[in-house]
Nucleic acid binder design. Structure first.
Lengths: 359, 359
DNA sequence: TTGAAAGCGCTAACAG
DNA sequence: CTGTTAGCGCTTTCAA
């Protein structure tokens, strides 16, 4: 039924060792023999048994993905990148969706076990310190995607620079009084985005003050959620003195921006006419809601992540790398840039049509 | 470094066979021995080598998922279900994201190879006829999720009944002239949703006519896309005579509904005041755009899919099953029901209906 | 350049 | 109930 290396060897009149060499492009085979073996293999449509190979060679040709399930579009896109690259180079992807840190650690430990996978892609979550020594001693290639740890290869987005860009954009549009809606400052992205916001303000000689920043309390998704966006915006809008001069808000994520949009509607505040908004992430909804935002190169992060992992597998001793990705400003409706003819002329815009969504 | 079954055996003072039995809950071990072995195993934090076990037992403890990449939320949710169930029973998930039928077939064949995976979950795509005989002869457990083939266990949504429900909802709200925006009739969901629409109309004594149905030309996503939704809606709205009396549209999917919404805005048609809309799928965007729609029990489909696959693995000879899922009406803004106090009062439904299975 | 043979770590059949 | 042993299909020395 199943055809094995023995069948091929017999049929080709060689030993199984030779067949093995052929299948693995080992140099020590004469061209003639190789051709003969390969043709037999094809004729029999022989395919090496993955597990047998794995057992003998101690390689699995698989990598595991440890990936949180709370979010959505971002991971899909990154995953798509990983996926495409995996298909290209022929490695298997073992998927572990994770709902909490404990699960993450569990799967991490499992993946660390000998002969399970050749490498690990760990996504977006804080890397459990309790695992770093084990990772090191097991010497399992590991790369952190959308995360950072000094001991491992990491891929991350330039949050600070992105936030700076977003805020500068608002400043260029003439806004002087720009608030920020942020998440919990305990997360790194939140800290960095705050820093970028501040950078932009100060670079333009505008005053920075935490009074204009709404920081989320600890909680669901660390404050990166619609509800917090809504209540922060409400707060911003209901404070009379602040409201008078406030003309723009930089929001640390698109989900929060959605909530902010809702709050604005409640208050009868027109976006972008009364207040301009810029978000962060470019989730799918942002496009439909016409949110101007900072887009992260998700797909590219995926392909690069796997590339990096493969590189690490090839050369375990190489110095640890940190790859950073620059987010891109996507101008849509909520920042008001499109109303500004002058501005439009020298700014790259997407082709999505602007709709007056807030009348 | 790596600890093997031999280490455990030696440490526990037994043979490796006994250790193996303990690890696999084989009955033929005395309670005392079992306890001792297990404790040693734990102490050494021994974990069987997956591949060695796979080689010897000819089981892999893994299933492959062949899943199209074009869509998003639906698959995420289903996947989450599969994922959770997998974690529960401890099977590995090997992911194959697929961009076209050729790739699907490629991965299918790969998965079919001996010893690769114990079973296959094939998602949403037409199952390649060229593979059914091979599947049968290889005897690899396979279940189709959101798809159907008479030879294999299938899980699907009751599209016809769902469409009927959606349309009836519109009728109950008093609409008499209800159009439909559909996809290409070459896909089964499109056909079934059309049939359901027709059922509802006829059950209420309303005239059914293909004049009121916009069928997509072949193309991207079989017409299940925003662009087609927009142009179909434009067409509906620009045809004077039709427009006069038209008060509602049933749309075969939420993505299309989004396009329709845009078209309505262009024409200055108010939703739901001038025209009521009901979509299908309940993608994430539907919630934010307040689209009334038919929700598919995605998560449950995922868990059930894996359950079914496990059942099939346990009993390969069992008769082929077909599990169907009833979509649920989610009332939001676009159908206008909320304007109707009476209606709201007796529509308190939110319980997901579980699968009814039939052979 | 090639064949033979020794494992990889485990399961399962076979004796005891 | 338990130890021993023969593979599972392949990679990889080691001789030839």
């Amino acid at each position: 039924m199943d055809i094995t290396i023995y069948d091929v060897a017999r049929e080709a009149g060689v030993g199984i060792g030779t067949v093995s060499r052929c299948m693995n492009n080992h140099p020590n085979v004469s061209a003639a023999t190789r051709a003969r073996v390969l043709s037999v293999a094809k004729r029999l449509s022989y395919q090496p048994h993955v597990y047998a190979r794995g057992l003998a060679s101690k390689k699995t040709n698989a990598v595991s993905l440890i990936i949180p399930y709370f979010t959505n579009y971002f991971f899909i896109e990154v995953l798509r990148g990983v996926q495409d690259k995996a298909a290209e180079v022929g490695v298997e992807l073992v998927l572990y969706g994770v709902n909490n840190p404990a699960e993450a650690e569990h799967y991490l430990r499992r993946s660390l076990h000998r002969g399970h996978v050749d490498g690990i892609l760990f996504f977006s979550m804080g890397f459990p310190e309790s695992c770093v020594s084990k990772c090191k001693e097991m010497n399992v290639p590991l790369v952190l995607v959308d995360g950072y740890h000094p001991e491992f290869d990491s891929l991350r987005v330039k949050n600070r620079e992105g936030a700076e860009l977003a805020t500068s954009h608002l400043i260029r549009l003439g806004h002087r009084e720009i608030a920020m809606i942020n998440a919990t400052l305990e997360t790194q992205p939140a800290q960095e985005r705050l820093a970028g916001y501040r950078d932009a303000l100060e670079a333009s000689g505008l005053a920075f003050s935490m009074d204009s920043v709404r920081v989320a309390p600890r909680g669901k998704q660390d404050g990166f959620n619609k509800e917090w966006g809504r209540s922060a915006m409400r707060d911003l809008l209901s404070r009379g003195p602040v409201r008078r001069s406030l003309t723009a808000v930089f929001i640390a994520s698109d989900v929060q921006a959605i909530g902010a949009l809702e709050a604005a509607r409640e208050f009868g505040v027109r976006i972008p006419d009364d207040i301009a908004l810029v978000g962060f992430d470019d989730i799918e909804l942002a496009q439909h809601l016409e949110i101007t935002t900072m887009r992260q190169p998700m797909y590219e992060m995926g392909t690069l992540a796997l590339d990096q992992l493969l590189a690490r597998m090839k050369d375990p001793g190489a110095p640890v790398t940190l790859s950073t990705f620059m987010p891109e400003l996507i101008i849509r409706g909520t920042c008001g840039a499109r109303r500004n003819k002058n501005f439009l002329s020298h700014e790259q815009t997407t082709q999505t049509q602007l709709a007056d969504s807030n009348t």
